[in-house]
Simulated assay, not measured.
Amino acid sequence: MTFDLFEHLEPPEVVREELAPGAVVLRHFVLQHTKAILAQVASVVEYSPFRHMTTPGGYDMSVAMTNCGDYGWVTDRQGYRYSRKDPLTGKPWPPIAPLLSQLAIEAAEQGGFSNFQPNVCLINRHAIGAKMSLHQDKDEKNVNYPIVSMSFGLPAVFQFGGLFRSDSVQKCVLTQGDVVVWGGVSRLAYHGILPVKAGYHSDTQDCRINLTFRQVD
């Protein structure tokens, strides 16, 4: 199946969907900026390539990752953490492009969170079959700031649960240009991505690209 981005003469209507208190899906929020955003992703990848990181338990992640910003999220046998330098290149991570930062700030505001100043952007590449198991984003020093997540390319089923792994989860399909924002009482909610199904998208070929913005300091 092929998923194509149609040209819009006007910006697409943003549809707001409540997931939970403090958690929303903003449908089509960055759709009109897709080309520019993916171009920025390509620039980051040229400097700090995608790689499959290893978990503390010794497993290679199915999702390929890189970062941009003041810090980058990394994982290896030593644990999960943020690092100012890319361990693959030994150099600082490339900066977050102004467009990406501004869109993340605007999305956070739409989600009800002001004063968000993202200084980390995780970039994930989900090939067909790649997944992200249920987890909490809790490696940040301050969890008062929200998470902003943008989706591009192949659709994926996003799982959003509660504060305990055993809590029931909601499932929603995320497509190109959709943004999820969660914070407040939902900031430490368990969430994940089911295995990406086979398909083709004209902008990303056979994968899904996800950008996740965080404020670490």
Rank of each mutant, 00 (worst) to 15 (best):
L31Q: 02
R27K: 14
V45E: 09
A97D: 04
P21D: 07
K138N: 13
V216F: 12
E17M: 14
C68H: 02
A130K: 05
S166C: 12
F3G: 04
V143T: 15
N119Y: 00
Q117V: 13
F213L: 07
M150A: 14
T55C: 14
K85H: 10
L154C: 07
Q110F: 00
L38G: 08
G90M: 09
V30I: 03
T175I: 05
I105R: 00
F158Q: 09
Y47G: 13
A198P: 03
L188I: 07
A42W: 02
K197Y: 01
H33V: 02
G161C: 11
C68D: 02
S186P: 11
V181E: 05
D76Y: 02
P94R: 08
L99P: 06
T66E: 04
R125Q: 11
N115K: 13
G69I: 04
D167G: 10
N124D: 03
L163A: 11
D70A: 14
E13G: 11
R125D: 06
H52E: 06
N115T: 05
D203R: 15
V44P: 10
W182G: 11
P98D: 04
D70Q: 13
L103F: 01
G184F: 05
G129I: 03
Y190S: 08
P49E: 09
H8M: 14
F164E: 07
N119F: 03
R214I: 06
T66F: 03
Q32R: 10
E18H: 10
Q159M: 11
P11G: 12
T75Y: 01
L103G: 10
D217H: 12
D178F: 08
F152R: 09
A42M: 08
A36Q: 10
K85P: 01
L38C: 09
F113H: 00
F160R: 01
P92C: 07
L9K: 15
E13Q: 14
V120F: 00
A104R: 03
W93D: 04
V45T: 09
P195L: 06
D203F: 10
G22P: 07
E140K: 13
L188V: 07
R51W: 00
H52G: 12
H8D: 06
L154G: 06
F3I: 12
C68A: 09
M132S: 10
L100D: 03
G183I: 09
V44A: 13
S62C: 09
P49I: 08
G183V: 10
I37E: 05
N67G: 03
T204K: 09
Q136F: 03
T34H: 06
A23M: 08
Q102W: 02
E7A: 15
V25M: 12
A127Y: 00
R27I: 00
N124F: 07
E7V: 15
A23D: 00
S168A: 14
K91C: 09
V74G: 04
D217M: 11
Q176F: 02
R84H: 07
Y47M: 15
Y71Q: 04
K131I: 04
A20H: 05
A20D: 12
A20S: 11
G161R: 10
P118F: 01
A64I: 01
L26D: 00
K131H: 08
G112F: 03
D70W: 01
Y47V: 14
L134Q: 00
M65R: 09
F164V: 02
F50T: 06
D206R: 14
E10M: 15
Q159D: 01
G90P: 05
C207H: 13
L188C: 13
R84L: 11
R84Q: 10
H126D: 10
V25T: 02
D86E: 04
I193Y: 04
H33K: 14
